[in-house]
């Protein structure tokens, strides 16, 4: 299903968001918004600030000492800066990184990690949750008989799906994926893309990608970021077929980047 995203209320909004790392500007007054239950594709050349953008959403940018931010990020209309308990924010936002990270513990413990840190210790509840997340990330059939295997011993593609399962373990309402397919094979990528299209019914997805075709396949809207600036954003087909700026057209057609 493809809900008409324009009918959905705004879920995530960036207002004049700027980020500096020391003296260098990583994001320059970014403003755009994402409706609920939609997939927003964020595309742009390497080093243009895409990953930084994700880190402002769950405030993990605060772990980088030299980073400073200006402007606002709003989730459901609430400014993330004003959320006093940062863990209640991170619980609602799932993150998947470019390189798969299996934590050095069993597959089961990997998926149960975040729920346990939130105080869930009931065995039956965790069992069910772990199974659901692994099913959602298309990993269940491959690991169901060896849930005690170390997460770090899985293959790259499996670890990436494990990372996805972990991100889903808190039922996030916003799922951020940072070039999730960079380290995995095309078949697995397609499998995960299918899963994400299904997950859209339950959550809003922010998809940072270098693959413009992946954005075209999946995203309802696309934001093009180049050299720290938001060049333009809009519905996917409009941006691909009829971009407002020449630069956008050239990037989306693979002429630079």
């Amino acid at each position: 299903m493809s809900p008409d995203s324009s009918m959905q209320p705004t879920h995530l909004e960036f207002r004049d968001l700027s980020v500096w790392y020391g003296q260098s500007k990583a994001l320059d007054e970014i403003t755009f918004s994402v409706p609920r239950h939609s997939v927003i594709g964020i595309v742009g050349p390497a080093n243009s600030g895409k990953s930084t953008l994700l880190k402002t959403i769950n405030r993990t940018l605060e772990f980088i000492d030299i980073a400073k931010t200006g402007g606002d990020v709003l989730v459901d209309g609430q400014n993330v800066k004003s959320i006093r308990n940062v863990y209640s924010l991170r619980r609602r936002i799932g993150m998947v990184f470019p390189l798969p990270v299996g934590l050095p513990m069993s597959v089961y413990d990997n998926v149960a990690y975040a729920p346990r840190r939130m105080g869930i210790h009931d065995k039956a509840q965790l069992d069910e949750l772990v199974e659901n997340c692994l099913r959602d990330s298309v990993l269940w059939d491959e690991v169901k008989d060896r849930l005690d295997l170390l997460g770090t011993k899985l293959s790259g593609g499996q670890q990436q799906r494990l990372t996805l399962a972990r991100a889903l373990s808190l039922e996030p309402e916003i799922l951020c994926l940072d070039e999730f397919s960079i380290a995995i094979d095309p078949v697995t990528t397609m499998k995960i893309e299918e899963v994400l299209m299904r997950l859209k019914e339950r959550m809003t997805i922010v998809l940072v990608t270098n693959l413009t075709q992946q954005a075209r396949r999946m995203a309802d809207a696309v934001a093009f970021i180049n050299a720290s600036q938001l060049i333009e954003w809009g519905p996917t087909e409009q941006l691909f077929n009829n971009p407002g700026k020449e630069l956008t057209g050239r990037y989306l057609n693979g002429e630079f980047g």
Binding site: N58, T60, F63, Y87, R90, R91, M95, F97, V101, L103, Y113, A114, R117, M118, T163, R166, A167, S169, L170
Partner: peptide, 9 residues
């Protein structure tokens, strides 16, 4: 970083 992103302190 993986843990911090999962909301672990």
């Amino acid at each position: 970083e993986a843990c911090w992103n999962l909301g672990a302190s």
